[in-house]
Design a protein around this nucleic acid. Structure first.
Lengths: 349, 349
DNA sequence: GTGAAAGCGCTAACAC
DNA sequence: GTGTTAGCGCTTTCAC
């Protein structure tokens, strides 16, 4: 049984309230009294029961993290950022994976209410808006990566349009003028935003990315591998390909190489996600767009802390992307934001 | 402010203690009284404050999850399993990522003690034994994936020897007799155990895997890509390669194809990890060993619940692996355990 | 059947 | 300076 403040008080010959004040540096008391209390507490290995103090303080220093569709490839990095910023107030994350099951989700929400978390972060595996949580939750909600379908909620997400813009600019800097875009299913918001961004970049140079040069595939490496050379027969002038993610990028790179085309000399390539494992090990390594998920996580955590402390900033915040330049499109960035280092501790994925 | 049991009691015209009993189906009381209490509670949206009840119950229904070296590629799947088994007792996970920093770790342990978690799961990104946690923690500890350096602690991990054995057997069934093993650095326990397992399989057929045919590289696809053809010059009789993980497997597959060798006709390939993203999209798709991490997670969670309930089963439990058969080594499994489905909800990584 | 009272561990207002 | 007291939300024992 863990020692209580009562044990500390008795062992140091003071009352419980004096012990409490002594431990928290509050109130006035003789220095030696305070020192004695602290010494005794340390000796006993006393750790105040946060559940007890939460009754009076109203804070649990715990934030729920609800993912609606499982943990994905981006989750670890995002989590790292959130955790790091929450530790500023020694808060920690309570994990809830609803697995697209409404019953599970309600169950988790009830558990989070029962535990009186200070706030809730709702996330998911795509950036598309998600139905907002019930309105009567007794704590603030922040949407991360996935936004809320109500734009007046607080959401922090990726600026995919900017990512697409960076990708387009980078291909242009490489000298490409006839660009092809291989990407995922059109129902993803990220997919359409990346297209808009690329178009904006091209437009700045008086170029276009017509609909027929935008090809939607499943986000599957093999599909890209099998499709790309056929596409190049249709668009033989192509000198640059913007791939909707690194999986597609990898498939494209492998197919081009197999067909005897040189990357980037004949065709330059830009991917998306900067998933090191894939991008850095493609032959040649892929230039890609980094979404700065660690940093996004930090912003999410800080936003959460602000919401808890009442200084809410509702609305959607979009975080810009960075260029991770590698050999598949090596042009110097010329002022565009460049990704250099990884997440503080390099993940193995 | 969330409604309290007092609100429920007043609104239903009974005392607090009656309300408590009514809500928990305890004690004797008139049916209509109980019904009224429950109805009122539902109407008010009452959720009992678990922090308050933890004071008397001694249970918080929260389990800490401490990772010492960050979240890796295996974490999401493992987490999924742990979470699923913990929900059996409506417990949830409190996340702590110590990032190889002892100060952070101590900080997290203190936070977990302060929150009076019911137990602690310690994990990491490799299976190698990790220094055990302080002995005076006021809750049970279970080591997951990474074992404790004290074998009398409770650890649940992967049976890498068995994985290596399955890999070896599969190559043999494919007809391979001259096997090469490309794997990671020898300081990983998993690496040496997988070697032992492969040797055991070969020995059953009177074959050997001599030291010079075991090649240690960094776990890096490009290293494998660059090394394998040189190695084949040195061991030209090779008809099967066991790769220490799927990254190496992918590098090997690509290099073999580029050199004009056919997989599996000339050389069969088995990887390890069954990392779908990589294994299923290699050309040809890689046969691999699945560590059943979701199931491992479930075992970890159940072990945790048992420890909490006092029915401890100290010691190291190792969970067997499965064969994920694909084209790079397609021989039928003949009774060996075969991996079929993925984690309940398919992760995108 | 129902309720009063004590107590879980801690904090804070107010005495002394 | 230090202690007494009340109370946070809930459970449980024990009267009535």
């Amino acid at each position: 049984m863990a020692p209580t403040i009562r044990d500390v008080a008795e062992a140091s010959g003071v009352s419980i309230s004096t012990a409490s004040k002594g431990l928290h540096g509050k109130g006035r008391m003789r220095d030696d009294t305070r020192d004695r209390i602290i010494a005794v507490a340390r000796e006993l290995g006393f750790r105040p029961n946060l559940n007890a103090s939460s009754l009076t303080s109203g804070r649990t220093f715990t934030v729920g993290l609800l993912t609606r569709d499982g943990y994905g490839r981006f989750t670890p990095t995002l989590l790292g950022g959130i955790e790091d910023s929450l530790t500023a107030e020694t808060s920690s994350l309570l994990l809830c994976d609803a697995r697209r099951d409404t019953v599970r989700e309600r169950h988790y929400l009830d558990a989070l209410i029962a535990k009186r978390v200070d706030g809730l972060i709702i996330t998911g595996r795509a950036t598309d808006p998600t139905p907002h949580a019930p309105r009567n939750l007794p704590f603030p909600v922040v949407y991360a990566y996935r936004t809320s379908d109500d734009p007046t909620d607080t959401s922090v997400t990726v600026d995919d349009e900017h990512g697409g813009y960076l990708a387009g600019r980078q291909l242009l800097r490489q000298g490409c003028r006839s660009i092809l875009h291989l990407t995922g299913p059109a129902h993803y918001l990220a997919v359409t935003e990346r297209i808009s961004g690329a178009r904006r970049a091209l437009a700045e140079h008086g170029l276009e990315l017509p609909d027929e040069r935008v090809v939607h595939l499943p986000f599957d490496e093999n599909q890209a591998y099998r499709s790309v050379n056929r596409l190049l027969e249709r668009f033989p002038d192509t000198d640059g390909i913007f791939c909707g993610n690194d999986q597609l990028g990898r498939g494209v790179a492998d197919a081009l190489t197999a067909a005897g085309r040189r990357v980037p000399e004949d065709i330059a390539l830009v991917g998306f996600d900067n998933w090191t494992l894939l991008a850095a090990h493609t032959r040649p390594p892929l230039t890609s767009i980094d979404m700065n998920l660690y940093s996004l996580g930090r912003t999410v955590g800080e936003t959460m802390l602000n919401s808890i402390n009442g200084s809410a900033t509702p609305g959607v915040v979009k975080q810009t992307c960075m260029l991770a330049i590698r050999e598949s499109c090596p042009a110097p960035a010329e002022g565009d934001p460049v990704w250099t280092s990884d997440y503080p501790m390099i993940p193995d994925a």
